[in-house]
Design a protein around this nucleic acid. Structure first.
Length: 246
DNA sequence: GCCCAGGAGCATA
DNA sequence: TATGCTCATGGG
């Protein structure tokens, strides 16, 4: 091992390996100015910058719960093609129409209700950034979903923890597994504080950009290498990670 | 056919 | 507080 891993240099190593990730993707804008074919916008921050984009990010954060993003892409494209580009448009549909549009993401009965609650909330709060507590009060919005919306839709400096984050931090030994609380909610807050309290971000870099990039890079690593069955042989962390497998 | 995917809510003990 | 179950489609 060449260098001891810590939360800060991990993000630097991943950025060097993968480059900017262009999150949060907006599939409906694939190919438009500043977006690549699948709606990513690498190196371009400050997006989304309009209500339709905010709605699409919020939708995506609910639809991707325990679901592969490719299935969410399908649903977001269907919603957009059907003209559902706002909370009001969503609420104007019949339940069965909503379910049909998001079917590809699975759990579509539950998610239809979650999106209805979200849409109603957004209509009641058309401006400004909602508080984390308000978002957490919505049916179907837990800590990861709330933080994803805050960080990517509203550009708040709120770090996002997901299953991939915990997997990578556990396997690399960055966080002692024994210290992880069993309670999911406590575990989330524990990991979030653990990471953010140890991050040293250069003054010239906005915290929001760093948080966005870091989360996206952890997902990239976990999807491509640190899978449930890991591909350690070609992993960019090979020189740093104590858990060599395969 | 099996495993997995960017969670959250609820019942039960 | 902790654990287990449920929700469901689609790709590898």
């Amino acid at each position: 091992m060449s260098e001891t891993l810590n939360p800060t240099n991990l993000s630097v190593i991943l950025y060097r390996a993968f480059g900017p990730q262009g999150w949060w993707p907006l599939p409906s804008r694939g190919g438009q100015a500043r977006y690549d074919s699948r709606g990513y916008h690498p190196g371009v921050y400050g997006l989304p910058n309009d209500p339709e984009g905010i709605w699409e990010v919020c939708c995506g954060s609910v639809l991707t719960q325990n679901t592969a993003w490719t299935n969410v892409e399908t649903a977001l494209l269907k919603l957009s093609c059907a003209g559902v580009r706002s909370p009001a448009a969503y609420l104007s549909l019949e339940r069965d129409e909503r379910r049909a549009l998001i079917r590809s993401t699975g759990y579509y009965n539950q998610k239809e209700e979650k999106l209805a609650a979200l849409a109603t909330f957004l209509l009641e709060h058309p401006e400004g950034t909602p508080s984390r507590d308000l978002l957490l009060g919505l049916r179907g919005v837990g800590p990861e979903t709330a933080d994803s919306m805050l960080l990517y839709a509203w550009h708040c400096p709120q770090f996002v923890v997901d299953a991939y984050t915990i997997r990578v931090y556990s396997r690399t030994g960055l966080i002692p597994t024994l210290e992880l609380p069993a309670n999911p909610s406590k575990r989330y807050e524990h990991v979030c504080k653990f990471i953010t309290s140890r991050l040293s971000i250069p003054e010239k870099v906005p915290i929001v950009h760093w948080y966005q990039e870091y989360h996206a890079l952890l997902v990239r690593l976990a999807k491509d290498f640190c899978r449930s069955r890991p591909l350690c042989g070609t992993c960019p962390l090979q020189a740093y990670c104590p858990k060599l497998q395969d």
